[in-house]
Design a protein around this nucleic acid. Structure first.
Lengths: 271, 271
DNA sequence: TTGCTCCTCACGTCACGTGAGGTGGC
DNA sequence: TTGCTCCTCACGTCACGTGAGGTGGC
């Protein structure tokens, strides 16, 4: 004989509030074993206690309800354990980002930023192998890793090699709306007609137009990249040089990026 | 001359979305330096870039907006740094809880719970020195620490000593609604009249009534205490013995709690 | 029989995101 | 002048919490 537990008893046994239990019923995460058709009273069985306790632990770890559902519905132990491991790994990465943010915060609050020189120049038109996408700001790092992986692979398969450092174009919406078009690319020292056959998968041959930019080199963690954006953007705005177009980042090394801010054609100091 | 930056320029320089910036304006966290009265256009100054970048870092750390406001409005560096340290410490504690939850989750999913014996007995009426409060489930641990601190202090000041282990009464709402009445207490081997003068501050002398309970001892981390609640509650429900009244926890040692579930007076097996 | 438990809406919270529909500035 | 940027509502999201108002079970 399995016991019929009222929602109140079940709540005390699982440390889940009655409101939470009703919510889990509403969204179908944890259905009561039985519902009295006359009164609507929910009744749970003793077998459901362990499941409910597992749900509480997952939620304590901030696992979204949909993912908890996936874990609970996993057809076998391997699948379920993999889902749990995935979440633990995501939490671990989150933790690392937290440490980086703390360091970056302390840098911002204590160390005055040494001003870096700005150069004004024209980036020449050039053929590149590129991957294009609409990317969320928060997901950019992962997206870029994959894109450059595919680009290097495609170039290598075609017997070509990059003619310069990897770079990316970031359209305004990427910053102002939290997601927008991004173009990750590798420059190539051949013309477009030679390059086009090399494009496979998501990669494509693109002819980048020439652009005038104000550029500043950022050194150190990329977590502090916004400081360079702030310094560069301030100067561009002060001089009234701002022009439309995407910002370019050129990845010179693991701890060196050149940020290129588009400016108007007619700047006198670079003529 | 300070630059007037449009919200779009400011967004690119701070990595804050335009929507976020408008929200921070709405709630008064970051007011634009200037607003065009005709068009309503927001304009920010270059001085505000660093503040906005700090806000973004705090929000990345999930610091609530109200707390960010407090940090930014701190009158001096000491106050501000203390607020930041407080948040970092809270994050550290959160992290520890995460690790404990992960361990507890794995215990739940892998180790079968060894069934513990249940004893049925009557807790005698007794005088205790107590602290009473309405406590949120999530805040219980901190609240109990303070309560027992005050109780030991008050007893010592009165020249008395506890006649048994610390314990607590937890009313149903504490579990079912996520917050409810809790009574933390120390038993004392004197009568109420002797005890009453010892009560100072929040402490008070209380005469606990006699109660019949089913009890089970929990061993190990308190993070897994719900497993004992589940096992004990199941048996009480199966036998149909459930009675109203608060659950009592008796803290026998750092890793031993006795959970006492109220039952009806007339249980035949204990008569 | 009392009152305690349980029920269902409807709305609030927090920090924005998502459109809709419209105007201003270079 | 075009279209791009910016504006203001109004509503949505996520996982519940907070009452209000009412009924069922021991």
């Amino acid at each position: 004989m399995t016991v019929r537990l009222t929602i109140g008893e079940f709540s005390k046994m699982t440390y889940l509030s009655v409101k939470a239990l009703r919510h889990y019923h509403d969204v179908g995460l944890l259905e009561p074993a039985d519902i009295d058709p006359a009164s609507g009273y929910r009744h749970y069985s003793a077998d459901q206690v362990a499941t409910a306790q597992a749900i509480r632990r997952f939620r304590d770890l901030d696992m979204p309800i949909e993912q908890v559902r996936t874990v609970l519905q996993a057809p076998d132990l391997t699948t379920r354990n993999q889902a749990i491991l995935d979440h633990l790994e995501a939490m671990q990465q989150q933790l690392e980002r937290t440490h980086q943010t703390v360091a970056s915060l302390q840098a911002l609050l204590t160390t005055p930023t040494a001003p870096r020189p700005i150069t004004y120049r024209t980036l020449a038109a050039s053929p590149v192998l590129a991957v294009r996408g609409t990317v969320a700001f928060a997901a950019a790092s992962d997206w870029l890793d994959r894109a450059y992986g595919e680009l290097h692979e495609a170039l290598e398969a075609a017997g070509l090699s990059p003619a310069g450092p990897a770079a990316g174009l970031y359209h305004d919406a990427f910053f102002t709306e939290g997601d927008g078009d991004v173009l990750a690319f590798l420059p190539v020292a051949v013309d477009l007609a030679t390059l086009e056959p090399a494009a496979t998968g998501r990669t494509e041959a693109v002819d980048l137009p020439s652009t005038r930019v104000a550029a500043m080199v950022h050194e150190g963690t990329f977590d502090d990249l916004d400081q360079t954006y702030g310094a560069l953007g301030t100067v561009v705005a002060e001089l009234g040089l701002g022009a439309e177009g995407p910002i370019r980042e050129i990845y010179l090394a693991d701890d060196r990026v050149e940020v290129c801010w588009p400016i108007t054609q007619g700047d006198p100091r670079v003529l």
